[in-house]
Simulated scan of single mutants.
Amino acid sequence: MKTKFYTLATFEFPADALVIKGKLESEGIPVFLKDENIINTYSFSSNAIGGIRLQVYSSDKEHATEIFEEFRSYATDAEGNPVVCPNCKATKSEIYYARKNMFFKLFPFLESKKYRCKQCNFITRPSK
């Protein structure tokens, strides 16, 4: 039998993933951290690998998403204010890297930072 997983979120740092993992497991949801050991060993490679993927069983997707939305943090600007989407004015944006060409796949740290709104999926660059 093939088990299906749902990637709830990705994290650059193991500590961030472990906090959410602990909360989900305390609610009875099994959690799997894909690439955690690689990033713990080679932390500089987190961006190149795509971060630590926090995964749950597909059958737990709705309940896990509900819990995660209560605890997640969204992107903030240099002053600590939430990033506002210019399209829909929501404050639920996250850092986004496209990695569309081979150069940025090999050197992801050179790609400029962008934000993607979780409400309307609009992608924007940070204001200066």
Rank of each mutant, 00 (worst) to 15 (best):
E12S: 10
T65F: 02
G80K: 10
I123G: 04
V84I: 12
S43W: 05
T41R: 09
A17R: 06
G22A: 13
L106V: 04
P126F: 08
S73E: 15
T41K: 09
S93F: 04
M1E: 14
L8H: 03
R53T: 01
P82S: 06
I39N: 03
T10F: 02
G80L: 09
K23A: 11
V31W: 06
C117N: 08
A90S: 15
T124V: 08
F103S: 06
K23M: 11
E69M: 11
K4F: 14
K2C: 01
L110M: 13
A9R: 10
D35V: 00
A90H: 08
I49C: 00
R116K: 14
K113Q: 15
G28E: 08
A78P: 01
I20M: 14
C88H: 05
I52C: 06
F5G: 01
K89F: 08
S26D: 13
M102C: 02
K100G: 07
V19E: 14
A15T: 11
D77R: 05
A17T: 09
A90E: 13
I38L: 14
F107D: 05
D35T: 10
D35S: 15
P126Q: 12
I95N: 00
A48H: 03
S112W: 02
A17S: 14
N47I: 02
K100V: 06
F68L: 13
G51R: 05
Q55K: 14
I20F: 13
K61W: 03
C117W: 08
V84H: 01
L18D: 13
T91H: 08
A48D: 01
F11I: 07
N37I: 09
P82Q: 06
F13C: 05
